[in-house]
């Protein structure tokens, strides 16, 4: 049962990602990205990360992608034109992607024992466990990340401010 759901949503995720690249209209691409984000959240839920799953929906599918769709609607972006692409991209890109995929796959495969094992459908970590790790063991990285986000917000404000 768990495996069936995993395969279903894994395929949905891949299909959404491919559709994102193949669609010519930006709004269809944005909607495919929402499908990708949401199916990822189901995969998180299967691994027992309930908080992460819902946070994924709220933050990525609900907030960030709404802003994407909002901007596309506001700019009224039209359909893209199909081009043949540059020859260099084909020559360097395809082998590059294949090489990267092989390296990543082999790395994950050799290191798979040191990652620990999470079984599908095993609910082990609760939200309070997660917050304990986040706010005790990883407090410094967490706070540094929030400062990084604050800097990004300030940067956006500075860029958006009108010159007087």
């Amino acid at each position: 049962m768990n495996l069936a759901i995993f395969i279903l949503f894994g395929l949905l995720c891949l299909g959404g990602a491919l559709n994102l690249l193949l669609q010519r209209h930006p709004i269809n691409s944005a909607l495919s990205l929402i499908v990708v984000m949401s199916s990822l959240s189901v995969l998180y839920l299967l691994l027992g990360a309930e908080f992460l799953a819902v946070a994924q929906i709220i933050v990525y599918s609900g907030a960030i992608m709404v802003l994407f769709v909002f901007v596309i609607m506001l700019l009224n972006a039209g359909e893209e034109e199909r081009t043949h692409g540059s020859r260099a991209a084909y020559l360097a890109g395809v082998p590059g992607v294949l090489a990267l995929f092989t390296v990543l796959a082999s790395t994950f495969f050799t290191l798979r024992t040191s990652f620990g094992n999470a079984r599908l459908g095993a609910f082990v970590a609760t939200t309070s466990d997660l917050s304990r790790v986040l706010f005790r063991n990883l407090l410094l990285p967490f706070e540094v990340t929030s400062i990084l986000i604050l800097v990004a917000i300030l940067g956006a404000v500075v860029l958006a401010r009108k010159e007087h």
């Binding site: 709004i27 929402i34 309930e50 908080f51 819902v54 946070a55 929906i57 709220i58 599918s61 609900g62 907030a63 709404v66 769709v69 909002f70 609607m73 609760t126 939200t127």
Partner: peptide, 25 residues
């Protein structure tokens, strides 16, 4: 009975925005 029930409601509400956004566009 979901452990993160409150967040599920917030999440579903945030997805509901698409209905209105896409209808207008």
């Amino acid at each position: 009975d979901v452990n993160v029930g409150l967040l599920v409601i917030l999440g579903v509400t945030s997805i509901g925005v698409y209905g209105i956004a896409l209808s207008g566009w």
